[in-house]
Computed example of a mutant assay.
Amino acid sequence: MTEPDLDALFEAAAVVRGRAHAPYSGFQVGAALRDEAGRIHAGCNVENAAYPVGTCAEAGAIAAMIAAGGRRIDAILVLADSPSPVTPCGACRQRIREFAGPGTPILSAGLDGLRAHYTLDQLLPTSFGPEHFIHGT
């Protein structure tokens, strides 16, 4: 991934992170992804008093991509203020898997910049995906 691409993802994630609705945990997360057309889509976490119905930043970014007509994730960056790298939760790893391949970069960033670089296959090995379904008949 080139530095301008990384910079654009980081900037988009930083902007939406500041808009996160996190009154319960205080843990704001921003995510930005690049789709197959090179467009950037971003999302932030949205907590809810009924904890299980909150939305992760990655899910918001994926929804924004789909709403804009994108269908493939080329790279995704997750930004949070944490002493160690923050990676997508298990549910979001599966959400990413729906629209990405095993080698898709998943980047973890802190407020000071990039912290870690993974691939989807590293975070979700031997995953279940759309190709497991038998189409037709």
Score class of each variant (00 low, 15 high):
77 L>M: 03
66 I>H: 06
89 C>K: 09
110 G>A: 09
28 Q>Y: 08
137 T>E: 13
64 A>M: 11
52 P>V: 14
22 A>M: 07
34 R>I: 05
34 R>V: 06
74 D>C: 03
130 P>L: 05
24 Y>I: 09
126 T>W: 03
123 L>F: 05
85 P>D: 09
74 D>R: 04
120 L>N: 00
110 G>F: 02
51 Y>N: 15
58 E>M: 15
95 R>P: 01
90 G>A: 12
36 E>P: 11
101 G>K: 04
71 R>Y: 05
127 S>Y: 05
109 A>H: 04
56 C>R: 03
111 L>F: 10
97 R>V: 01
92 C>A: 13
101 G>D: 03
6 L>K: 07
56 C>K: 03
126 T>M: 08
78 V>N: 01
5 D>R: 11
110 G>S: 08
79 L>D: 03
25 S>M: 11
35 D>R: 02
81 D>H: 11
72 R>E: 04
135 H>R: 15
104 T>E: 01
84 S>D: 11
2 T>C: 14
19 R>M: 12
27 F>K: 15
117 H>T: 03
18 G>F: 06
19 R>A: 10
1 M>W: 12
39 R>D: 10
101 G>P: 08
56 C>H: 14
98 E>K: 05
53 V>Q: 07
91 A>M: 15
120 L>T: 00
131 E>K: 13
19 R>P: 05
87 T>Q: 12
8 A>D: 02
130 P>V: 13
59 A>S: 13
63 A>N: 14
28 Q>H: 12
132 H>P: 02
49 A>R: 07
37 A>W: 10
124 L>V: 00
127 S>T: 04
97 R>F: 01
47 E>K: 08
122 Q>T: 06
56 C>T: 15
50 A>D: 11
58 E>G: 14
85 P>E: 05
102 P>D: 10
80 A>V: 06
107 L>E: 09
126 T>A: 14
12 A>F: 08
4 P>S: 10
122 Q>R: 04
10 F>N: 02
112 D>N: 10
17 R>Y: 05
16 V>T: 11
119 T>N: 02
54 G>N: 08
76 I>A: 01
49 A>P: 08
77 L>R: 00
78 V>S: 00
15 V>M: 10
30 G>I: 02
127 S>Q: 07
129 G>T: 02
29 V>F: 04
107 L>D: 02
111 L>M: 15
11 E>C: 10
61 A>S: 15
27 F>R: 14
25 S>R: 06
66 I>K: 06
